[in-house]
Each structure stands twice: as C-alpha cells, then as structure tokens.
C-alpha cells in the first residue's frame, strides 16, 4: 500500500491535518458534541491506518446506529451506515462475500451490546475475521440519555432517573469468554496506547474486540453531575489502572470507580474462514472449491 493510493480521491491535503486524507472532509463539521470522545477515537483509528499502511481500497468500515454509529459516515473508506445493532452481521456478510477485505465495525455500546448483543457474542464465538471497535459512553446518547446495558449501577440516566439498579455488562469479559482472540480496553485519554492497540489489531486476524471508554458530557456527565468532558478525562487520568493480561473478571466498571485498561487477550486462533477451509479440505479433499479472495461474484 503506497501513500499515493492512500491520498487518492480526496481534495484535502495531508498538510491541513495529518488524518484529513482518511476522512470525508466534505461532510465536516461532524455532528458530535463538544468534548465528546468519539472524535478522538476516530483520530487514533485513522493514525493507526496511516501507520500500518493497510490497503485502504480494500478496507471497509461498518457502523450501526447512534452517536458512534456515525463514524462510518466520516471515514473515507467503503463505508456502511447500517441498521441499529446489525453492524456485526452486516460486516460478517461483507467479509465472507469478499474474503480479501479488511473489515472494521465501529459502533457504540448500546448498538453492539444492547440491541446487537446476540451478534457480538456469536461473532466472537465463531471468530469472524473482523476488527470490532466499541465506544462505551455508558448511555444512549443519540436518543437523549437513556439507560444502556453498560450504565454503571447507581448512575442516573433519563430512564433510570433515580439511578440504575441493573447490573451492567463487563464487555471485555463478555468478548473474552465468548472466545475473542484479541481483547483490549482503553479510555480515550490513552491516545498513544489506543493508537498502538488499533495498529496492532489491524494486523491481527480473527474477532478483535477493543472497548474504548469515552466521555459523554452532554448526557452522561450532565445527568450525573460529573462536570465537563475535561473533568471526565481528568477522572480517567486518576482512575484508569493499566494491567495488561489482567483477568477480565476483574474488569467490571462501577459508578465513578477505577477503570481497568490494557490488552487482556492476544492469542493465535483459527478464524471462521480458516476453520471452514481446513475442515472442508479434510472432509472433501479435491472436491472443495473455496471462495476466491475477490469474492464469489459472477461476471462477464
């Protein structure tokens, strides 16, 4: 992948901003609130794309619905803004339909672990070869601050006005226990570590799950009187605890409690497609015809 290909089809010079060539600058300004963490994470992801020099022409990004669901729409890649919760199965189809693609799912906690939770666990179980970036802001942002499957106990949301009494997901533990071979968590304060993790994950295979804790000052912070986005970043600074290889059972997140960060899982494991090829080669021998890397499309 050459830098020339990377800067194709964009009229924005890299000198304007180092990640401008990776964005749809004709769609700026974006819709995210001031001090929202999603933009920072997009910056880290674009930096990782730049560092790894992956072939951007063969890179697709898929989002669901919600604040983070808008990420696909701002990335200058083949980009799919799909239905609520279905980014992972949509991405599964893309990857299996054209196996040479590098497919990233970029969406939020409500989208991927609430309405789309079933797809998350099954993609991890099958080890579908996609990179899954989940931005966790502990709340449904786009719809106005409703309770999420990630809202910490006792935190307030617009639908838990007296505080949340449900147990939230420990998402890194969920992904790891379902078999994801690469599992990490950072907050969006950890921009260098996050970029490094994205870059590493881009070159790994299988279902790579990266959770990024992000501030939502408009809703989560306001409803819980936690101050501004900057105050939340300060909170991450004081309360994030980096522990690579930690037992993910310890990674639960309580309200205004410590946030365990790091790379928790990084193992070699055959992907769905590799297992399928291996199995059919064994059982069918020469009769097995795998799908071509460019897909099973029929053309003249």
């Amino acid at each position: 992948m050459s830098t020339t290909t990377q800067s194709l089809h964009t009229n924005v010079d890299a000198s304007e901003h180092p990640i401008a060539p990776f964005l749809r600058m004709d769609r700026m300004p974006h819709i995210w609130c001031p001090t929202c963490g999603i933009g920072t994470i997009v910056k880290c992801f674009a930096s990782a794309l730049e560092q790894t020099k992956v072939d951007l022409d063969k890179t697709s990004i898929v989002s669901g619905i919600g604040c983070t669901g808008r990420v696909a729409g701002y990335m200058k890649l083949d980009a799919f803004h799909t239905t609520h919760g279905r980014a992972i199965p949509f991405a599964t189809g893309l990857k299996l339909g054209r196996p040479e693609l590098l497919v990233t799912v970029f969406s939020g906690d409500g989208d991927l672990s609430g309405i789309g939770g079933n797809h998350l666990i099954h993609a991890a179980r099958r080890n579908i070869d996609i990179l899954c970036i989940l931005v966790n802001n502990f709340i449904y942002g786009m719809t106005g601050g409703q309770n999420a499957p990630t809202t910490p106990v006792s935190a307030r949301s617009s639908t838990m006005p007296y505080g949340n009494f449900e147990h939230p997901f420990n998402l890194v533990h969920l992904a790891a226990s379902c078999g994801a071979p690469y599992v990490a968590r950072w907050t969006c304060l950890h921009i260098r570590r996050l970029t490094k993790t994205f870059a590493e994950a881009l070159t790994r295979k299988g279902f790579r799950f990266i959770e990024v804790i992000a501030p939502c000052s408009t809703l989560y912070a306001r409803l819980n009187k936690l101050g501004s986005g900057l105050d939340l970043m300060r909170f991450y600074h004081d309360n994030a605890e980096i522990k690579h290889g930690a037992d993910t059972r310890e990674a639960e997140i309580g309200f205004q409690d410590r946030i365990l960060c790091g790379k928790f899982v990084d193992i070699e494991k055959p992907t769905f497609t590799e297992l399928m090829h291996e199995h059919y080669t064994k059982t069918l021998g020469d009769r097995f015809v795998p799908m071509k890397p460019e897909g099973g499309w029929i053309h003249e």
């Binding site: 799909t82 599964t92 893309l94 339909g97 797809h119």
Partner: peptide
C-alpha cells in the same frame, strides 16, 4: 447465523461485495 435479523443483515452486507 444466530437469528433471522443477522441472516438478512449478512445477506445485504455480502451483496455489496458483488457476490450474489
């Protein structure tokens, strides 16, 4: 797939690769 929601989503995704 794990359900019909996922099946249909995967079919729409795959169709965008040109694979019928």
């Amino acid at each position: 797939m794990e359900d019909e929601l996922a099946s249909m989503a995967a079919v729409v995704g795959a169709a965008w690769t040109g694979t019928k």
